[in-house]
Design a protein around this nucleic acid. Structure first.
Ligand SMILES: [Mn+2]
Ligand SMILES: [Mn+2]
Ligand SMILES: [Zn+2]
Ligand SMILES: [Zn+2]
Lengths: 144, 144
DNA sequence: GCTAATTTGATAATGATTATCAACTTCAAA
DNA sequence: TTTGAAGTTGATAATCATTATCAAATTAGC
């Protein structure tokens, strides 16, 4: 799940910004791209520690920001006030169904909804930039 | 904009919970229901101070929570990490178009989008509870 | 290898919200 | 009315995720 292309992509972004691809950054890139999606910085910190002890919180946050800037990750500002991160491949935009019991995130896209959103922008005279759609409910497993 | 019905509604909620309708609560109810929508707790605190000095921050937060529980207000968890509040009349649910330049909130509803969201819940085996749709763009005024 | 620039980890700071608590209100019974 | 138990208030400390700071360590191009 961590391709050479991703590494190069990160490397390129850093170089272009006059930054360096350090050991810690490489390790975090690896753990984030190989791990589960929609994790908090704290959970990612834990996953990184498991494999590479000694990397600090600040470096996790700093590197997550770089990964987002480089387009390799997306940051989700969640309702509980904690950010979650997902590696954003070349795959398109998606929205989320979120279980309020177990916290599971399900990725969904509805092209019809996307189209109607564009219409809302236009009708109200807004230049569209982005949107956020979150559907909260109880998943099949949690309903029992 | 602050009807007798609202007052009674708040009073009823408090009574039913064994709570009291105090002076500060009454004043905050008045300022919130008569004022602009989509304000932060801090902005509401300022508006309350203008008319009734001496009411503390904590009381603002506590009363906003009560107003939400009573169904008179809605809390929006915004992307900047600050909550905003709007008085929720009997009017139905709505979503928001938000200008990323001036911060203006425009309320919108698209019944078609609402319907398609329900379908997404169903298709994915979720019991629907609520949703959040925010459309970020640049408003007509800000585009100049 | 050398060295200037960048990065790191520990930790202090920030900022919104919540918890704490002694003093003050409320309200209904006496 | 007076009274007092229950609830409320304002000031302020605590919380918690995220950022900023900074001396010591690492990186990358020469
Ligand atoms: Mn996702
Ligand atoms: Mn609104
Ligand atoms: Zn679930
Ligand atoms: Zn605007």
């Amino acid at each position: 799940m961590l391709t050479e292309k991703d590494k190069r992509s990160f490397q390129d972004y850093l170089t272009q910004k006059g930054l360096k691809l350090s050991g810690p950054r490489m390790k975090i890139l690896e753990v984030v791209l190989q791990g589960t999606k929609h994790l908090t910085a704290n959970e990612i910190y834990g996953n990184v520690q498991k494999r590479y002890a000694g990397i600090g919180y600040a470096t996790i946050y700093r590197t997550l920001r770089l990964l987002c800037e480089a387009g390799l990750c997306m940051e989700l500002k969640c309702e509980d006030g904690v950010c979650r991160y997902e590696h954003a491949g070349d795959d398109a935009h998606h929205d989320h169904l979120i279980c309020t019991k177990c916290g599971r995130y399900v990725e969904v896209v509805d092209p019809e909804i996307e189209r109607l959103q564009e219409r809302l922008f236009k009708v109200n005279g807004f230049f569209p930039q982005r949107h956020r759609l979150e559907l909260y409910g109880i998943c099949r497993k949690c309903k029992g």
